[in-house]
């Protein structure tokens, strides 16, 4: 299945992950991801017919009362922002639409 990775495949995954990769990184990851996935291929040979997936080992449903409580102050919430605007209460970002 994952015989090899082309540069364009790696570029596609990087775009999905919002990662800007250098040309060297594209080559390195193409090789490394192919080798890790080739190793992981061994799971394909295990018979899992009728076996349900485990998403979490927690089976008990954790419920709690829906109680209103204080949350983070606006000032605290903005304190770590690289470009926060306290007066307006906003995170400032580069433009979204061309």
């Amino acid at each position: 299945m994952a015989a090899g990775f082309s540069r364009s495949q790696v570029e596609h995954v990087a775009a999905l992950a919002n990662l800007e990769l250098t040309s060297d990184e594209l080559d390195t990851f193409a090789t490394q991801l192919a080798s890790i996935l080739a190793y992981a291929e061994q799971v394909q040979s295990i018979d899992t017919t009728g076996v349900p997936p485990t998403a979490s080992v927690v089976t008990a449903v954790s419920e709690r009362d829906d109680v209103t409580a204080a949350s983070l102050d606006r000032e605290d919430a903005l304190a770590n922002a690289p470009d926060g605007h306290l007066e307006a209460g906003l995170f400032r970002v580069p433009r979204v639409i061309g």
């Binding site: 992981a40 394909q44 295990i46 899992t48 485990t54």
Partner: peptide, 15 residues
């Protein structure tokens, strides 16, 4: 399906 879901099924077998 081939990777993530398959891995979760094998995870059940390991458990």
């Amino acid at each position: 399906d081939a990777y993530y879901l398959k891995a979760q099924r094998v995870r059940t077998l390991i458990r």
